[in-house]
Every structure is written in structure tokens, then in C-alpha cells.
């Protein structure tokens, strides 16, 4: 049940987030009513400091976050899987060097990395750098352990005794055998990437005003939380919903494993 639910929810939500700008009833960037207007039927979530419709801004505000998080998670996954395959397959020195490097990266908090990167790079590039540095080592370790198990299975031995090259075995046998694991791990990387992107946005390294963005909205609307609480609650709920859905999706891929 979780499988279907997770996949459907994730697809619908991501699709809605990406195309949300067109579904917004009002312009997300221009004032349409009074500042901090309370929710009404015309404006279900009220308005923010400039009188912009909060619902329209929430609907349109996930796009840039998701568009940053997806490539960041993919990059982390690709780097981690490639490293894990190499470490697990080659063993010995390659394994020690790669896991050693991964451990060094793991020792550094990824938010710190993101902040350092954000001082030099544009916001989305900083998210990618931090997600790769903080996430790829975790992927690497998981994949490496899976590969060391799979190395001794009958089907890998059969492929070796057929004289297949290492790369062919990794791509044709090892990788498909752990597709569930890689998929689940990608979901987790996506969650982390989204969190880093939101954190940077909240600290002012993300989208610039007047763009609609969940993290930016949290930051801007905090001042009016007493006047219109929905203006702060809505982007927070949207972020939470997105993260939970992605985590559910990750779990559903893991269940497909067997």
C-alpha cells in the first residue's frame, strides 16, 4: 500500500510543484489586497507584508527549491554510487582510500559546507556542492557494503567465469541487483538536498525577493506572524509535506527490492 501511495503522492506533488506557477489564481509577485490581510474566501491563506496572495505564492514557491534539490540529489547519488562500486569491487587499497576520503567528508557538517560554498557560489550551486560532499559519502558506504556482498554471489561469479569485464559486470549484474537500494538512497539524498536548499534560502542565500520561494517566504513573513499566521504556516507545511512525501517514496522503492 505504501508503495503505491508513496509513488503516486510523490509524482503528483512534484508535478504540481513544478507546474504550480500556472495554477496560481493571482500573480505571486504583485500586491492584490491589503497587507497582512486575514484569510478570506477570495484569498484562502490571506496576504503577506506587501498584500500578495499567500496561496498563489505557496503554489508557485516550490519550483526553484525542487529544481535545485533534484540535480543536487542526482549528482550526490551518481558520485556516491560510482565511488561505492569502485570501492566495493576493487577492494584493498582503492577501498581504503575511497572510504577514507568519504569519512573525512562525513566528519564535516554539510550545512557548514553549504554556508562556506554559498559565500563563493550562487545559491543553487552551493546546494549541489553541499549535497554531494555531505551525501555522496553516505551513498558510497551503503553501496560499497552491498557490492562486497554481491561480489560473492553465484551470478557475479558466473559473469566472471564468462570472462566479462569488471565494468560490464558492475553495470549489467551488480547495479540492477541493487536498484532498489540505489533508488531508496536517492530518495534520502533528495530529502537532504531539499533541507539544505531550504536552510540556505532561510539564511538569505537562496532566491532573491520578490520571487516566490517557500524558504524566502518563511523569512519574510516571520515579522507578520501575529497578523496572519497562515503566511508562515503555509510554506512550512508545504516544505514538510514535500519532504515527507519524498521519504515515503524512498521507502516504497526499498520495499520493491525483493
Amino acid at each position: 500500500m505504501t508503495r503505491v501511495l508513496g509513488t503516486v503522492l510523490a509524482v503528483v506533488l512534484i508535478g504540481f510543484t513544478l507546474l504550480g506557477e500556472w495554477a496560481a489564481p493571482y500573480s505571486p509577485t504583485s500586491p492584490v489586497t491589503a497587507a497582512w490581510a486575514a484569510p478570506t474566501t477570495a484569498h484562502p491563506l490571506g496576504a503577506d507584508a506587501l498584500g500578495r496572495d499567500v496561496w498563489s505564492r505557496v503554489v508557485a514557491g516550490g519550483r526553484s527549491l525542487v529544481l535545485t534539490a533534484i540535480p543536487a540529489a542526482l549528482a550526490a547519488s551518481v558520485v556516491g554510487v560510482a565511488g561505492g562500486l569502485a570501492a566495493g569491487w576493487a577492494g584493498r587499497r582503492t577501498d581504503r582510500i575511497l572510504t577514507g576520503v568519504a569519512d573525512v567528508f562525513l566528519a564535516v557538517p554539510s550545512l557548514l559546507l553549504a554556508l562556506v560554498a554559498a559565500t563563493r557560489l550562487p545559491g543553487s550551486a552551493a546546494v549541489i556542492v553541499a549535497t554531494v560532499c555531505g551525501g555522496a559519502p553516505l551513498t558510497l558506504r551503503v553501496v560499497r557494503d552491498a557490492v562486497t556482498q554481491i561480489r560473492h554471489t553465484g551470478y557475479v561469479i558466473a559473469a566472471r567465469t564468462r570472462g566479462e569485464r569488471s565494468v560490464a559486470i558492475l553495470v549489467r549484474e551488480v547495479l540492477p541487483a541493487m536498484s532498489g537500494l540505489v533508488g531508496a538512497d536517492l530518495g534520502l539524498r533528495l530529502v537532504i538536498a531539499l533541507q539544505i536548499a531550504a536552510a540556505l534560502g532561510l539564511l538569505g542565500f537562496g532566491a532573491a525577493p520578490p520571487a516566490p520561494d517557500w524558504a524566502l517566504m518563511l523569512r519574510e513573513n516571520m515579522t507578520g506572524v501575529a497578523l496572519n499566521p497562515a503566511a508562515v504556516a503555509a510554506p512550512a507545511v508545504a516544505l514538510g509535506l514535500m519532504t515527507t512525501t519524498l521519504a515515503l517514496f524512498a521507502q516504497s522503492t526499498a520495499h520493491r527490492e525483493r
Partner: peptide, 8 residues
Amino acid sequence: ATALNPAH
């Protein structure tokens, strides 16, 4: 148990 690739 591990003779065949679960993905193939």
C-alpha cells in the same frame, strides 16, 4: 539463494 540475479 544467490545463484541468480534478482533483477534479471
